[in-house]
Simulated scan of single mutants.
Amino acid sequence: MRITTKGQVTIPADIRERLGLLPNTEVSFETDGDTVTIRKAGGKNRRGQRIVEHLRGRAATRLTTDEIMALTRGE
């Protein structure tokens, strides 16, 4: 395995599949001497969870599902 000029390395497909490392999965790196460990980022630091928490309670109007669907359909 070689590191590209951009600092990228390919994680083999079998490892990605076994660990559930899908595209856009956030990971963290830990170092111990000359050893690097990559881990799936866990806890509340996940991007999707942060986005939902940021948006929660921000809706200014109370629309029903039917009203929202009518707006998205241009009715």
Rank of each mutant, 00 (worst) to 15 (best):
A59H: 04
G42D: 09
L21E: 01
M1H: 09
I15G: 02
L55S: 02
R46K: 15
G48Q: 14
L21R: 01
Q49S: 08
R47L: 12
D14N: 14
V52F: 07
S28K: 12
T37G: 02
D34R: 05
R56Y: 08
K40G: 05
G20Y: 04
D14I: 08
T25C: 09
T61S: 05
E67N: 06
T5E: 06
T5W: 02
R18P: 00
L55Y: 01
F29P: 01
E75R: 13
S28E: 15
T61D: 13
R46P: 00
A59T: 06
V36I: 15
L21C: 05
P23A: 13
M1L: 13
R73T: 06
T64M: 10
T37I: 13
D32G: 07
P12L: 10
I3S: 04
R18Y: 08
N45E: 13
Q8S: 14
A60N: 01
L22K: 15
D66I: 10
A41W: 11
R16H: 06
L22P: 01
A41M: 14
K40A: 14
T31K: 14
T10D: 11
L19C: 04
K40L: 12
L19S: 02
V27W: 07
T5D: 11
R16P: 00
G20K: 09
I51N: 05
R50Q: 13
T10M: 12
L63N: 06
S28G: 14
G57Y: 00
P12K: 11
G20D: 12
R47N: 05
L55T: 01
V27Y: 08
A70T: 14
T5C: 02
T61F: 02
L63D: 09
I38A: 12
G48K: 09
T65H: 08
V52A: 13
V52I: 12
R50N: 09
Q8I: 07
G20P: 00
A70F: 06
L55H: 01
R18G: 04
T31F: 08
G74L: 03
I3M: 09
Q49P: 00
D32F: 10
R73D: 10
K44V: 05
T10S: 14
G7C: 09
